[in-house]
Amino acid sequence: MNKYLIFRTDRIGDFLISLILIKSIKMVDAKSFITVVASDKNYEYIKSFNIIDEVILLKGGFFNKLKLFFLLRKQSFDTTIVHDGKTRSKLISSFLLSKNKYFSNINKFSSYIDEIKYILQNLKITFNDSLLDILNNRDYSKIYTPKKPYIIVHFDEKWIFDQYIKTYSNIEPSLKELETFLSSLTEKINKKIVVTTGVKTPMILKKFFEKNSDENINLLENLNFFHLESIIANSSLLISCHGAVSHVAAAKSIEQIDIIDKSYNYSKWSKHFRNYKSIERKNFDSLYKDILNSLL
């Protein structure tokens, strides 16, 4: 039995990239034992995947990192992959017993999928496009999902100027602009709109839904990510700022409009996305018109 140790101590979207690698390994080496070292931001979500045999939480603080090191030092691995590229992960891995070690360096590649193909080549595993279907066979039967057909507008903190990267273009709408956008969108697509959000519901959404009387526009909030995944998986379109939800839509080949900032090369993340269209961030009045026009 081959033992793999993979470090992914960052966020959910980052893990979904690594899941392509993990699925590839399991496809050719079903009896392999895969351990993922996770962060507090993706630990619970990673545990929902049966394909992963063990998930270890990297807790904050020097002594917790030391404790993790000694735990891992007791074991011997066939392959260790530091896929998060974090200095702390590299440092811990440097002293572990492992026949093969790979430290991620995305600067050597044009995209994350190209790096994955390189890692797989070194593992003598052939990549094929079916490996992009990383969310197949997920059981959503016990989770509420809206009645089809519907689209999703994922409105999280990335739409709010003061809550996101200040150097990015401001796309925050006024309440009136948001009302115009959502009502125009319902007319355009003739489907229900499900508005989802992140950890906290932005105040502007609360104000909108306090007086919203349109039964075709509904809010779902306080969702864990597995629940959000299931709702995206059953939708016909996702409109969102780039993030973990973008990776879910890509994995399920759901049509998506990905809102990105021109200052960053998002193609590093999205080169392998299917059914994908991106729109650059700009003032909301122009942005929502671009979104509507893209649906022609």
Rank of each mutant, 00 (worst) to 15 (best):
T201W: 00
D162S: 12
T126A: 11
Y164K: 15
S240G: 01
I165C: 12
S253P: 07
T35S: 12
S246G: 14
S94V: 10
N100F: 13
Q163W: 13
I12H: 04
I34Q: 06
K99E: 11
S89K: 06
I231N: 03
L135I: 08
K47Y: 08
I189R: 11
S111K: 02
I152E: 14
N222G: 07
I6E: 03
I92W: 04
L135R: 01
K99V: 09
K191T: 08
K74V: 07
S98K: 04
A30G: 09
H272T: 05
L220S: 01
F155V: 01
S111Y: 03
T167Y: 07
S184M: 06
I160S: 02
D84V: 06
I217R: 07
E280Q: 09
K67E: 14
E255N: 09
F161P: 09
I17M: 15
K192F: 10
I134R: 03
K99S: 08
L91F: 12
Y118I: 02
M27H: 15
V37L: 13
M203R: 15
E255L: 04
I259F: 05
F181K: 01
T197I: 05
T145M: 15
F225C: 03
I279M: 02
F63T: 14
I204D: 01
N128A: 09
K117C: 08
D40P: 10
E177W: 03
L295P: 09
E115P: 00
F70L: 13
L205T: 05
D214P: 02
I260C: 04
L205W: 01
S110C: 08
E172C: 03
C241H: 02
